[in-house]
Simulated scan of single mutants.
Amino acid sequence: MLKFVKNYMDSISGIEVYPIISLLIFFGFFVVLFLWVFTAKKEYIQTVSNIPLENDNQNQTEK
């Protein structure tokens, strides 16, 4: 089975570019995410981190 797949992949021209593109997309996503995390405002991070606690407090007061 593996020999068939290897022979089939070798017959496709230009297929070697797809793993490179997927690696660049993967790496680029995490670079952008890393930059966003370090440039995000502290007030925004604090507000977003308190959202689950605020929802929990609302649920407890409704009961």
Rank of each mutant, 00 (worst) to 15 (best):
I15H: 08
I15C: 03
I15L: 15
E16A: 09
V17C: 02
V17A: 09
V17N: 04
V17E: 10
V17S: 10
P19N: 06
I20E: 08
I20T: 12
I21N: 01
I21T: 02
S22F: 09
L23N: 04
L23S: 06
L23E: 02
L24E: 04
L24H: 04
L24W: 00
I25M: 01
I25A: 00
I25K: 00
F26P: 00
F29Q: 04
F29L: 11
F29R: 05
F29S: 05
F29I: 10
V31W: 01
V31A: 04
V31E: 02
V31G: 01
V31K: 05
V32Q: 01
V32I: 11
L33H: 01
F34R: 06
L35G: 04
L35P: 01
L35N: 02
W36F: 14
V37K: 06
V37F: 07
V37S: 03
F38Q: 12
T39D: 02
A40H: 08
K41Y: 10
K42G: 02
E43F: 03
Y44H: 12
I45C: 08
I45D: 09
I45W: 13
I45G: 09
Q46D: 14
T47F: 12
T47K: 14
T47S: 14
T47I: 10
T47H: 06
V48I: 14
V48W: 11
